[in-house]
Amino acid sequence: MPWINACATDDIDEEDLIRFDHGSQTFAIYHSPEGDFYATAGRCTHEEVHLCDGLVMGHLIECPKHNGQFDYRTGEAKRAPVCVNLRTFPVKVEAGRVFIDIA
C-alpha cells in the first residue's frame, strides 16, 4: 500500500487533531506541540468512539466520551477506562502535505 496523502500540514492546529477517512478505515492525525505529526486509528479502543472530538494535551489524546487517554505517539493506553493500546501508523511530511502509511 503506498503512502496516502491525508491532509495539508496547516489543516491541523498545533496540539490538535483531525479525522481522516480512507475507504472503510478511519484515522486520527495529530499535530504535536513540537510541530511533529502522528497518526493513529480513529476510534477509541474502549467503546469505538471517534477521537476526533477529543482533547490533545501535550502528547496525550483524551477520548471525548469517557476521558480515557492515549499517548498518540506510541498508542499506549494511559488512563482508564482505556486498557487496550491504540494502533499507530507511520507518518511523513513532504511539501507541506501529511502522508500516512496505512499498510
Partner: peptide, 10 residues
C-alpha cells in the same frame, strides 16, 4: 465505580 460511571455515560 469508575467503570460503572463509564457505562452510565455510554
Amino acid at each position: 465505580w469508575r467503570w460503572s460511571h463509564a457505562r452510565h455515560h455510554t
